[in-house]
């Protein structure tokens, strides 16, 4: 901790948020392993992307504000950025999976895959 002792009002919420963020992210990524199909797996990592990221960035905000001694809000930028961008990736991947399943089915001479 580079020798700086943080006041309790910053250390306790930051520690709680860090633990919550770690648990949420690891559960979300566990979904990548445990869920059965690709379309179900899409939902796992979005836990880490939303609340996991949010908790982590608030913890980071508490700690850096307490170190510098004034409100430091630039972590907020990452939150906004992740919240705005991760749905774009998820939507494109969902459409790619449907498109690929469909073109695979038609090229094999079957009917179009039931969504």
């Amino acid at each position: 901790m580079s020798g700086v002792e943080l006041p309790l009002w910053a250390a306790v919420p930051a520690a709680l948020l860090l633990v919550a963020s770690g648990l949420l992210t690891v559960t979300g990524s566990l979904g990548l392993l445990r869920l059965p199909s690709f379309q179900a797996r899409m939902h796992g990592p979005s836990m880490g992307n939303t609340l996991g990221c949010g908790c982590m960035l608030f913890a980071s905000m508490f700690v850096s504000s307490a170190i510098v001694g004034r409100p430091v809000l630039h972590e907020f930028l990452i939150t906004v950025f992740v919240v705005v961008t991760s749905p774009a990736t998820a939507m494109l991947l969902m459409r790619a999976s449907i498109y690929r399943a469909r073109s695979k089915a038609t090229s094999a001479g079957n009917e179009v895959v039931e969504r």
Partner: peptide, 27 residues
């Protein structure tokens, strides 16, 4: 292939969170 891309996407978000945790540890 889309599973691999989803894995990469998760990997970079987790890597970013890991760096922020390192930042908290080193101040």
């Amino acid at each position: 292939a889309q599973d691999r891309v989803l894995g990469l996407d998760t990997l970079y978000i987790n890597g970013m969170l890991m760096l922020l945790a390192l930042g908290i540890r080193s101040g």
